[in-house]
Design a protein around this nucleic acid. Sequence first.
DNA 1: AAGTGGTCTAGACCACGAG
DNA 2: TCGTGGTCTAGACCACTTT
Lengths: 261, 261
Amino acid sequence: MARTGDPARAVTAPALSTLDFALDRSSPVPLYYQLAQQLESAIEHGVLAPGNLLGNEVDLSVRLGLSRPTVRQAIQSLVDKGLLVRRRGVGTQVVHSQVKRPLELSSLYDDLEAAGQGPTTRVVRNEGVPAQADVAAALGVAEGGEVTVLERLRLTHGQPVALLCNYLPAGLLDLDGARLESTGLYRMMRASGITLHSARQTVGARAATGEEAARLDEKEGAALLTMQRTAYDDTGRPVEYGTHVYRASRYAFDFQLLVRG
Amino acid sequence: MARTGDPARAVTAPALSTLDFALDRSSPVPLYYQLAQQLESAIEHGVLAPGNLLGNEVDLSVRLGLSRPTVRQAIQSLVDKGLLVRRRGVGTQVVHSQVKRPLELSSLYDDLEAAGQGPTTRVVRNEGVPAQADVAAALGVAEGGEVTVLERLRLTHGQPVALLCNYLPAGLLDLDGARLESTGLYRMMRASGITLHSARQTVGARAATGEEAARLDEKEGAALLTMQRTAYDDTGRPVEYGTHVYRASRYAFDFQLLVRG
DNA sequence: AAGTGGTCTAGACCACGAG
DNA sequence: TCGTGGTCTAGACCACTTT
């Protein structure tokens, strides 16, 4: 299956002309967004194959009955996602395979969004405490001020995978234990109108202490993966600070980086 | 230093009206980009403080002698970077402190862009070899086809930090050993006209083998941080596949995630 | 009611890359 | 030379938030 050279045969997608984009002008969903979604779906389903040209923007806008800026906005959003490439004098083409789903920041979502079927969560601790120095600094509150501490043990298939310790500003959220075990922290935040925007993470490794080993069913000294994270909402306010420890034998971070042009 | 509530006093930046944005219409640099840079600089230097309103887009465009879409494009780019927040009916304001520099994908750049003063690199191996199965799959070449293998030892302050093993498609690059040690892989790629676009990474941990321990000046069984990465250029073509091992006692990944709206 | 950003239009000219 | 995307304009109407 040699796929070495193959100089990106630039064929205009034959299906594109017959592809019917259903644009609903009465819908509250923006036109550029409708178009972007349908293009993305066409790429995902292989209707638009890697290397296919999209046809120039002017023609496309005429055929769709949209203005060129609107079509550009749709295309641009897919370029940002890494699905399309624009080249002056050439055209817009579907990116050369690979790298399908950018994984939606999996490490962040996996951790905050419990749910699913395999993974379960046991809430070990959930109470208000005075903030230690590092917590206070991360959450932007006074040292000794009240914060909520949340300790959870995460398991998959009955086996422990991670120890999660999170701190939240006091009163940010109603942390019902039962819902936490079934719903996950991230969904509870979202349901409370908190929009996550960015997070700063540090990922490292170290040997397990005796207590960690006992809780995670590892031997003392086993390699653990550690992660510290501070998450911010869309106003830049810190909403979560956490220290997580993972069994390296059962867990790894898997994520996609996009280089900003 | 309690900075708890402080309900984001929405004050229009007093300095904004006197801020002189120097827009050069004869410059090849796009106007929206010039504006974005100057806004970013103003935010960075504290001229625009967190929470400050930017003033509405229409006024701003009139005052700058630009059209509204152009001003919007500048603002949007800073919103994407997480420096500004837009709210309907409210306005655009500087994000509420924290999270200044998104670190420019440091883990990727740190690794590829050697240079600097502290870190040095020793090239241990640099030759063409037949691709093993995992390498072939990652780089999209035939199994057994020729690829370039590159093994490097990275040191800071004379101490070993990491073992880097990278595979590149054969003939992609002129890998001059001397330049590799001083310049770094990433810069050499960029100089060859290769534009990095995205990368897929897996970060984990494990205990050091005897050989790794010897090379990294650790004890056998010490916790190591591991990373596998496949990097792609802007056409989606894989340009690098690597397996890296770091001394956990001296290295951690530090990066910023932006949640895509 | 007033003000804000969100979307959309119908043009225009330019710079770059391919042939 | 010609076609492509890159940039820019000067409007318009709408939805949402605050007062």
